[in-house]
């Protein structure tokens, strides 16, 4: 049974960051989607039975300071490379969901020195279509009802009642929406250069996709996968863009199955040291 350890990491290079940290074991850096850190917790609790899960709220998102110099996803990737180094996380599994998947890719093309496995779930960040085709549903100009239908395949998360939330919870939502737009307004949700850099990702990678993702199609996911040398593709049924919310058990099982090798590798490394 895992023991919860809250708040072990609280800053990077002196910049305050809000981290949901739970479990013990090899490190798993969970980079969440643009809607913010909170909704993925069910899957995270399962992952925490095997891993020390580190789920930060990205710089500029609710609870986390944004140093003024951080204005792009490229900057975010350096921030997390600093986090991995400063907090001595070696052999980390990095799981990135949606916008967090974009950040994870940007990290991995720069360095996998601290990374053993990479999971990209319904990740954005690359351009695959022609110039007049928008690959990614525009989350910044869509009604909220339609957005929730595009994101979620199951009924429960499609419903939201702001009036029953605390002021702080609603404020976190609006802060996250603004933070996401800062990084992803234009070019919309991608870095035009990233696709040609994906060949640099030097660790085993799982590209995991909600079969009913209404934000980025499975075809987009397969194209993402094809650009990464050691990548496998898998889908989760009855799941939309945020599979860890629609199907937390299936999501966690895919990650655990894929990383069981990483756990073994970690033990071997520890034994050899």
């Amino acid at each position: 049974m895992s023991r919860k350890v809250e708040g072990r990491i609280s800053s990077v290079r002196g910049h305050r960051i809000d981290v949901h940290e739970v479990g013990e074991g090899p490190p798993l850096l969970f980079l969440g989607a643009g809607i913010g850190n909170d909704p993925g917790r069910a899957a995270i609790e399962i992952l925490a039975r095997k891993f020390r899960v580190i789920a930060p709220s990205h710089p500029g998102f609710a609870g986390s300071e944004r140093p003024r110099s951080i204005t792009t996803v490229d900057d975010l990737s350096y921030f997390y490379l600093d986090l991995l180094q400063e907090h001595s996380l070696s052999g980390a599994v990095v799981v990135g969901v949606s916008f967090g998947g974009w950040i994870a890719s940007e990290i991995a093309v720069k360095s996998t020195a601290h990374i053993s496995r990479l999971v990209l779930a319904d990740a954005v960040g690359i351009k695959i279509g022609d110039r007049e085709t928008r690959d990614i549903t525009d989350v910044f100009q869509i009604t909220e009802d339609n957005l929730r239908k595009a994101i979620f395949a199951t009924p429960a998360p499609r419903v939201v009642d702001y009036k029953s939330m605390t002021d702080a919870e609603v404020l976190a939502i609006t802060q996250n929406r603004e933070a996401l737009a800062r990084f992803a307004w234009s070019p919309y949700m991608h870095n035009p250069k990233l696709k040609d850099r994906l060949h640099r990702i030097a660790v085993p990678t799982l590209v995991l996709w909600g079969a009913e993702d209404g934000v980025v199609s499975t075809a987009y996911g397969r194209a993402y996968c094809a650009a990464i040398p050691a990548a496998a593709f898998a889908t989760i049924e009855n799941a939309g863009h945020l599979a860890q919310i629609d199907q937390p058990e299936d999501f966690a099982r895919h990650v655990l199955d894929f990383t069981s090798g990483a756990l073994t590798a970690k033990r071997e490394t520890t034994g050899a040291a």
Partner: peptide, 22 residues
């Protein structure tokens, strides 16, 4: 059309939170 009326960042997060709360 409603999807164009309030792009993120135009109003402060505090103002947007008040709007969501009705």
């Amino acid at each position: 059309a409603p999807e164009f009326r309030n792009p993120p960042g135009y109003l402060s997060p505090e103002d947007n939170a008040r709007i969501l709360k009705g």
